Amino acid sequence: RAIAVDVLNALRDYRVSEQAMRRRTRSSMGMGEKDLLALRYLFEAEAAGKVMKPKDLGDRLGITSASMTTLIDRLVESGHVRREP
């Protein structure tokens, strides 16, 4: 029982640290949570040799196509991604 409590406490500490790191990253990059998640999903797709279309990315993020267009516009403008036909 004590080991289980230690594991749960370690997981909680990890989660708190991860959230703080994401906050610092968002702040330093001037990006929102969805923007960072989008980049993460795009990096994962690229590493797997796959192409992620805007609709696929929007589905993963749980946002509408209009919101996806706005998000992509921000990422393109900031130089993080580029559009390709």
Rank of each mutant, 00 (worst) to 15 (best):
R60H: 09
S78I: 01
L57K: 04
A38C: 07
S17R: 15
E84Q: 12
A45S: 12
R12Q: 13
L57G: 05
V16E: 10
I72Q: 04
L39D: 03
A20H: 06
L36H: 01
E44K: 12
H80V: 04
K34T: 09
N9Y: 03
R60D: 01
T25V: 15
A66W: 08
T69S: 13
S67G: 12
A48L: 12
A2V: 10
R1H: 07
D59V: 12
S65C: 00
T25A: 11
V51M: 08
E18V: 07
N9H: 10
S65Y: 06
T70Y: 09
T69N: 10
M52L: 15
L37I: 04
S65K: 11
Y41K: 11
G62S: 04
E44W: 03
Y41S: 08
A66R: 15
G58E: 01
A20F: 03
R24S: 09
A10M: 09
R82Y: 07
D59C: 00
M68G: 02
G79D: 05
G62R: 03
V16S: 03
D73H: 12
M52W: 02
L37N: 08
V7Y: 07
T70A: 14
A20K: 12
L39F: 05
V51D: 12
S78F: 08
G62C: 02
R22V: 07
A66C: 00
P85N: 11
M29G: 00
N9K: 14
T25G: 00
R40W: 08
G58F: 02
S27R: 10
I3W: 09
L61T: 01
L37P: 00
R83L: 09
M29E: 11
V76Q: 09
L57V: 04
S78P: 00
E84A: 14
T69Q: 11
L39H: 03
S17I: 01
M21T: 13
L39C: 07
A4K: 07
K55Q: 11
A66P: 00
K55S: 14
A4G: 06
G49N: 07
A66H: 10
S17G: 13
G30P: 10
K34W: 01
M21S: 14
M31E: 05
S17Q: 14
R12F: 08
V5I: 10
A4H: 05
A10W: 03
L36R: 02
A20D: 12
R15D: 13
L42W: 02
E77T: 10
L8V: 07
G58D: 01
D73R: 15
L39G: 04
S27Y: 06
D59R: 15
A45M: 05
L11I: 08
R83A: 06
L42H: 06
T70H: 12
D73N: 15
P85M: 06
L39W: 04
E33D: 15
R74C: 06
R24P: 01
Q19S: 02
V51P: 01
R12E: 14
A20T: 09
P85H: 07
R12S: 14
